[in-house]
């Protein structure tokens, strides 16, 4: 299991030029000196150092680590993947793609290579190829939740929200316990103009994330983080259902909109929740009208640290 997790991390690698990698790279000489004495941890440290060096564009150090690693583990898919990332850093995308193609042809075919290939395609703007690569990879390795998320991300970036919803529905099947996926599903459904479905999904997130283990009844808690975002989504949905009743009947997934009485009490509840949250984060009295409240809350939510 540990190896698959490590491979998934490698498959998802993207260049950030982060401070963390700079810090790690500053320790390069000590890591290179001491890896042999640390056993398994030492090798892992080398892998991390390679990634950090690539992140910072220090090809020389990366090559040094790669050489040690590939001598120690000649047939490892992890090292192969790392070598691929190294190729992506300096060579042209075509060479990297060719390298991944060879790996995928070979014996140790692996989901990680497919994902890396897709990310190369995506970086050079060949979205259609990336989608094709990812879908064929996921057709074989169905259980790669991250792969499905990435596919949904690609679809959303092209405004193909219906397809994104389909990919996300697979993540929901694979990890039904993860509220983040449900929230993403709800937000995508909202973008796909399937408001009744979005409303149900937002409520589902609320149901999953509010802490009902504590002694305080849920009505007295202050929604934060995911729950706040979900309430915000609920409010958006009820607001739209109230102002444009037509959207309630135009659901692509044939989800029925809630009856008017339920809808109005949901709207009341969501408004009340959002006002509580607003009052607690800004210490100001919340705006009165619906649209003003939504605007004000959007600022609160998009502020880093609250979600």
């Amino acid at each position: 299991m540990e190896v698959t997790a490590a491979l998934q991390k490698l498959a998802a690698y993207e260049r950030h030029e982060s401070q963390k990698s700079q810090k790690l790279l500053d320790n390069a000489s000590s890591i290179l000196k001491s890896y042999a004495r640390q056993g398994d941890e030492g090798w892992e440290a080398l892998e991390k150092l390679t990634l950090a060096a690539l992140d910072q564009g220090d090809i020389e150090t990366a090559d040094k680590c790669l050489k040690i690693l590939s001598e120690r583990f000649p047939d490892s898919a992890r090292v192969d993947c790392l070598t691929g990332i190294r190729l992506e850093a300096t060579e042209s995308p075509d060479i990297a793609l060719q390298y991944y193609d060879e790996l995928l042809e070979g014996e140790s075919a692996n989901a990680a290579f497919g994902r890396r290939k897709a990310s190369v395609y995506r970086r050079i703007g060949k979205i259609d190829q990336a989608v094709k690569e990812l879908s064929s990879m996921l057709d074989t390795y169905y259980t790669e939740v991250d792969g499905w998320l990435e596919l949904a991300d690609i679809y959303s970036s092209c405004q193909q929200y219906t397809y994104a919803l389909q990919s996300l529905s697979h993540t929901l099947l694979l990890a039904p316990q993860n509220p983040f996926h449900v929230l993403q599903f709800a937000e995508t459904a909202y973008l796909a103009a399937d408001i009744p479905l979005a409303l149900k999904m937002y409520l589902q997130v609320v149901d999953m994330t509010d802490d009902d283990e504590e002694d305080v009844p849920p009505i007295d808690t202050i929604p934060t983080g995911l729950t706040l975002r979900a309430w915000f989504g609920v409010k958006l949905c009820t607001h739209r259902l109230n102002t444009e009743p037509r959207v309630g009947s135009s659901s692509a997934s044939q989800t029925p909109a809630p009856p008017t009485t339920t809808l109005s009490s949901l709207d009341d509840l969501a408004t009340e929740r959002l006002r509580t949250a607003y009052l607690n984060t800004t210490q100001e009295s919340p705006p009165k009208t619906d649209s003003a409240l939504i605007d004000a809350l959007a600022k609160v939510i998009s502020k880093p640290g609250t979600t």
Binding site: K200, L203, Q204, V206, D207, D210, D212, P217, P218, I219, P258, T262, S265, L266, D268, L269
Partner: peptide, 11 residues
């Protein structure tokens, strides 16, 4: 889920 949430929040 609507009725569940409304019940949970006493509405």
């Amino acid at each position: 889920v609507e009725t569940r949430i409304l019940k949970k929040y006493g509405r």
